[in-house]
C-alpha cells in the first residue's frame, strides 16, 4: 500500500547535521558567533565550524557546567555563543548553571542539544532524555525550539543566531526524512500549518512531525481530514494558531518525543483549557524511561509513531 503523502522526501539526514551546517553558516555571516563543545564535536557536527574558525571555537573537555558558565561570560562580553552537547548533559546536568548564569541573567546563549529523545537509540535510557523540553520551558526568559528535519534545523540555527536572548535548541541523531523545503524561513514562535484539515488537529514537534504527516495520509484514506501543525517553537507557544485550528476541528492530538508530563501536550492543554476546552489526546512517553533499541523499534514500543497518532486522532474525535 502506498500512501498519498502531502509531503515527500528524497533523502534522509540527521537533524544534528542541519544544526552543524547552520552553525557553520551562522559563523560565516556573523563574526560574533562562537562555539563551545564538551568533547562531542563529532557527534554535534560542530567540526566544520571548528576547522574554519579555530580561534572562535572552544573545546571545554567533559565539563558541561563550566561550558555553560563560559558561554554566559562570552555572551555578556558581546559574543553569540553556541554551546553544544547531548541534550541530557545540556539540561539536567547543568540545570542550575542555565538557571542562574543564563536564564535569570538573560544571557544570549544558545544551548544546542543533540541526541534528544528515544531516537538516540542503542545508547539507552541514560542518554535518552525525555524531560528536557519541560525543564527548559519552565525557565523564564528561555526560548525553546525543537525542529523536525534537517532543513528546519538548519533554518532554526540561523534564526537563533539573529535572535537576542537565551535559546534551547533541541535536535537528534537518527537519519530522518528531509521533507521541509531548504529555503524555508524560520520564524521563532510561529507555528506552521503544514496540512489543512477539518476533523482533528495534530500538533507535532520534532521528529514526530514526520509521523504526523504519515498519520494524516492514513486518516485521509479513511475519510478523516486531519490538520497538521508543526510546533517547532515550544516556547513562546503560538497559542493563536492552536486556538484557531481547534476552533475549526474541535479536537486535537499532541505528538512529541518527550514525557507527557511537562511536554508540548501540557502546554497545549493549558491553552485549550483556558480558552476553548476541547478533547485532546496525547502521543508521548508516559512516565517511563527509554531503553536500548533502534529508533524505529523504540518509537513503536513507546507508542510514538504514525499508527499511534492515528489511534489518538480517532479517540479525540470520538470525544467531540
Amino acid at each position: 500500500m502506498s500512501l498519498d503523502l502531502k509531503y515527500t522526501y528524497t533523502e534522509k539526514k540527521d537533524t544534528r547535521s542541519g544544526f552543524g551546517d547552520g552553525f557553520l553558516e551562522a559563523g560565516r555571516r556573523n563574526p560574533k558567533v562562537v562555539g563551545l563543545c564538551a568533547d562531542l564535536i563529532g557527534s554535534l557536527k560542530m567540526g566544520d565550524f571548528q576547522k574554519e574558525f579555530p580561534d572562535r571555537f572552544f573545546q571545554t573537555g567533559i565539563a558541561e557546567a563550566n561550558m555553560i558558565g563560559l558561554a554566559a561570560g562570552m555572551a555578556l562580553g558581546g559574543k553569540i555563543p553556541f554551546a553544544g552537547t547531548f541534550a541530557n548533559f545540556a539540561t539536567g546536568r547543568v540545570y542550575d548553571q542555565i538557571r542562574q548564569s543564563v536564564a535569570y541573567s538573560d544571557k544570549n546563549v544558545k544551548i544546542c542539544a543533540s541526541h534528544a529523545g528515544l531516537t538516540l537509540g542503542e545508547d539507552g535510557a541514560t542518554h535518552q532524555i525525555l524531560e528536557d523540553l519541560g525543564m527548559m520551558k519552565m525557565l523564564p526568559h528561555m526560548t525553546v525550539i525543537n525542529p523536525c528535519d534537517y532543513n528546519q534545523t538548519k533554518a532554526a540555527t540561523l534564526a537563533i543566531a539573529e535572535f537576542e536572548g537565551p535559546v534551547y535548541l533541541r535536535f537528534g541523531r537518527p537519519s530522518w526524512p528531509v521533507f521541509t523545503p531548504a529555503d524555508q524561513k524560520f520564524e521563532i514562535g510561529k507555528a506552521w500549518k503544514m496540512i489543512d484539515g477539518r476533523d482533528v488537529t495534530i500538533f507535532a514537534t520534532g521528529h514526530l512531525v514526520w509521523e504526523a504527516v504519515v498519520a494524516e495520509a492514513i486518516l485521509r484514506e479513511e475519510g478523516i481530514r486531519a490538520e497538521v501543525i508543526n510546533i517547532h517553537t515550544i516556547k513562546p507557544l503560538d497559542t493563536e494558531a492552536i486556538l484557531e485550528s481547534v476552533k475549526k476541528t474541535g479536537c486535537a492530538v499532541s505528538a512529541e518525543e518527550h514525557q507527557l508530563n511537562g511536554g508540548l501536550g501540557d502546554s497545549i492543554a493549558q491553552t485549550l483549557i483556558r480558552h476553548n476546552p476541547a478533547p485532546l489526546e496525547y502521543v508521548g512517553v508516559n512516565d517511563s524511561f527509554g531503553e536500548s533499541g533502534t529508533p524505529t523499534q523504540l518509537l513503536e514500543k513507546y507508542g510514538l509513531n504514525a499508527e499511534n497518532i492515528v489511534k489518538a486522532a480517532k479517540r479525540a474525535m470520538a470525544r467531540k
Binding site: 557546567a65 563550566n66 563560559l70 561570560g73 555578556l76 562580553g77 548564569s101 541573567s105
Partner: peptide, 18 residues
C-alpha cells in the same frame, strides 16, 4: 551576572576573559 548558587563565577569570568 547573577550569583548566589555557588561555583559558577570562575567559569563566567573565564568566558569574558576569553
Amino acid at each position: 551576572i547573577a550569583s548566589g548558587s555557588l561555583g559558577q563565577g570562575l567559569s563566567v569570568a573565564l568566558g569574558v576573559a576569553q
